[in-house]
């Protein structure tokens, strides 16, 4: 655990140097990577540790985005709005988890997939509060330049990624993570051994919701304008899963690396295949599930076999 923490600290410090070297393009790409890193890490709590294939990332992300945006529209300061958005997603995940986590496997996946659609329709129709299909504009600070803005949101996203990573590292090496691994491998047996499976699963879902929601709130402030199809996009759910599978489900660095690899591929390769890039996404998922269920880092690490 100490080694992972140290490695992560170095990694985050190196990433923090990006604004010194890079231009606006690199900042934007870096912020996007960190954001997806957070969403992937958030998914890892429920999907990687507990083994529940959640498609609720988009729901949490969108809810957080709208919660943060509405709060800011009502005059709440930005930092507080982000915190509130995270808290709201956390509470929402708790209620949702109590209802949905009774389902297992495919049933849970389908049920969680629908949540984002429901929220999108709700936001669409609550025109007074959210602007409905017109979208929602967020206040742009007058005293800031474009460059300082993008730097600010880069660091905000970096801070959130660091917090999320710390939470995940803690969870993985605590009784919570241990219980979740038990659930992932054999839920009935875990129940028989005294694991309060409902409590543990809901806790994992809450952590997942809180961080994905906070990422949504920062995203909303960053892009200044959100609309329902944008923030409740099912691709947030799908990409999070693909990223974690790429990096290695249940591992601490997997989600971050998976996000980086996935977005690099998207940037470097897919721009050349614009017409068929969703086809490439589908192909990647199929190949992943078939050949690398434990992620790209399982490719050539024979000496790590047998390690948890």
């Amino acid at each position: 655990m100490r080694k992972s923490a140290l490695l992560a600290a170095v990694l985050f410090l190196l990433v923090a140097l990006v604004p010194l070297a890079g231009d606006a393009y690199w900042l934007r790409l870096g912020t996007t990577m960190l954001m997806y890193g957070v969403i992937a890490m958030a998914w890892n709590f429920i999907g990687g540790l507990a083994g529940y294939p959640s498609f609720a990332s988009a729901a949490f992300f969108g809810l957080g985005a709208y919660a943060g945006a509405v709060a800011q529209k009502l005059g709440v300061p930005m930092g507080l709005a982000w915190t509130l958005a995270g808290a709201l997603s956390l509470a929402f995940a708790a209620l949702l988890g109590l209802a949905l986590l009774r389902l297992r496997g495919h049933y849970f996946a389908i049920a969680s997939l629908v949540v984002a659609e429901v929220l999108r329709e709700l936001v669409n129709s609550a025109t007074d509060l959210t602007g409905g299909g017109m979208g929602l504009n967020l206040p742009v600070p007058h005293d800031a330049t474009v460059a300082s803005q993008s730097e600010f949101f880069f660091y905000a996203m970096l801070a959130l990624a660091a917090i999320t990573f710390a939470a995940m590292l803690w969870a993985t090496h605590s009784k919570l993570g241990f219980g979740l691994r038990c659930i992932q491998q054999n839920e009935s047996a875990a129940d028989m051994l005294g694991v309060n499976t409902t409590l543990y699963k809901v806790a994992a879902f809450m952590l997942s919701g809180a961080f994905a929601g906070a990422a949504g709130a920062i995203y909303a402030s960053w892009v200044h304008y959100i609309e329902p199809p944008d923030v409740f996009d099912v691709l947030y759910s799908v990409k999070a899963i693909v990223m974690v599978l790429l990096g290695g489900a249940g591992s601490v660095f997997g989600p971050l690396f998976g996000a980086a690899i996935f977005l690099s591929l998207e940037e470097l390769v897919w721009r050349n295949y614009l017409q068929v890039h969703t086809g490439v996404l589908g192909l990647m998922i199929v190949l992943l599930v078939l050949f690398l269920p434990k992620g790209v880092f399982s490719l050539r690490l024979p000496w790590r076999k047998g390690k948890p």
Binding site: G179, Q185, S188, L193, V195
Partner: peptide, 26 residues
């Protein structure tokens, strides 16, 4: 209870299997 069909946590070590029982029920 033990199960007719054994129910270990397959990807965990033998020690972790037993430790799980000790910490959650014991």
């Amino acid at each position: 209870r033990t199960f007719q069909i054994v129910q270990p946590f397959p990807e965990m070590t033998v020690a972790e299997n037993v430790a799980a029982a000790a910490m959650f029920a014991g």
